[in-house]
């Protein structure tokens, strides 16, 4: 049996940059693009990291929250907020009855949730996801977002646990602000079919502002 490779929405564009490739949770991913020195510099000024490979589990329905709680996943109480639902796992509440669970590099909750027999879940339905997802950080990150998003995303205005569902570069996207190893970063999710478009825009602006792409290795070292 041929082993099939799972690809990121940005796979082809990233391969053209000749990165050091690896795999995470079965998905082929770019671990490093320009080496640690250059990427560290990007990270300081404006670094863009593709984290589409993170495992995700979406669930929607009247009892979605209740079911997640039964699985030991903490869920946000307020609409459009997020919490760390389990160690290394983010849980975003996208509406009254919809949640996005995402394992970070070390999280393990999604695999457990995926394994559950969906037929036995009452009044809640799995949302199969194929997001493109990014981490943006660095001193110029708000400068970049000022061009792509009409909302005020400054720390003083955007509470750190808010989930913003908005338009970024003209497409629907979800955004949060979080602290990653002490650094304030923004996380963006968009429909995977728009992933390449958004990636190219992010990289173009990042490069104009002195930043650039940051591989998974540098981002999470």
């Amino acid at each position: 049996m041929t082993e099939l490779i799972k690809t990121s929405p940005l796979s082809d564009a990233q391969k053209m940059m000749k990165p050091l490739m690896g795999s995470h949770r079965g998905m082929e991913v770019a671990l490093s693009f320009e080496g640690p020195k250059a990427e560290q510099k990007h990270k300081t000024i404006l670094g863009v990291t593709d984290v589409s490979c993170f495992a995700r589990f979406g669930i929607k329905g009247a009892k979605a929250g209740e079911w997640l709680a039964q699985q030991g996943i903490k869920t946000p109480e307020a609409l459009n907020t997020w919490v760390e639902g389990a160690p290394g796992t983010l849980v975003l509440r996208l509406g009254m009855s919809e949640f996005l669970v995402e394992d970070q590099l070390i999280g393990k909750a999604c695999a457990k949730l995926q394994a559950f027999d969906q037929a036995n879940i009452q009044s809640a339905y799995q949302v199969v996801r194929a997001d493109a997802a990014f981490v943006l950080g660095g001193s110029e990150v708000l400068n970049l977002l000022a061009e792509l998003c009409v909302l005020d995303l400054r720390d003083s205005v955007l509470p750190s646990n808010f989930v913003v569902m908005t338009q970024i570069a003209g497409i629907s996207a979800t955004l949060i602000r979080e602290s990653l190893s002490g650094e304030q970063v923004y996380r963006i999710w968009c429909d995977g079919s728009y992933g390449l478009y958004l990636w190219e825009i992010l990289i173009e602006i990042a490069q104009e502002l002195g930043g650039g792409v940051v591989g998974l290795t540098c981002r999470f070292q």
Binding site: T7, P9, S11, D12, E147, A169, G170, I171, D191, G192, S193, Y194, L196, Y197, I201, E204, I205
Partner: peptide, 14 residues
């Protein structure tokens, strides 16, 4: 401004 031409691609596009 910057040219934003939002477009969707399938996984097989390349």
């Amino acid at each position: 401004g910057r040219s934003f031409h939002a477009h969707r691609l399938t996984a097989i596009h390349a």
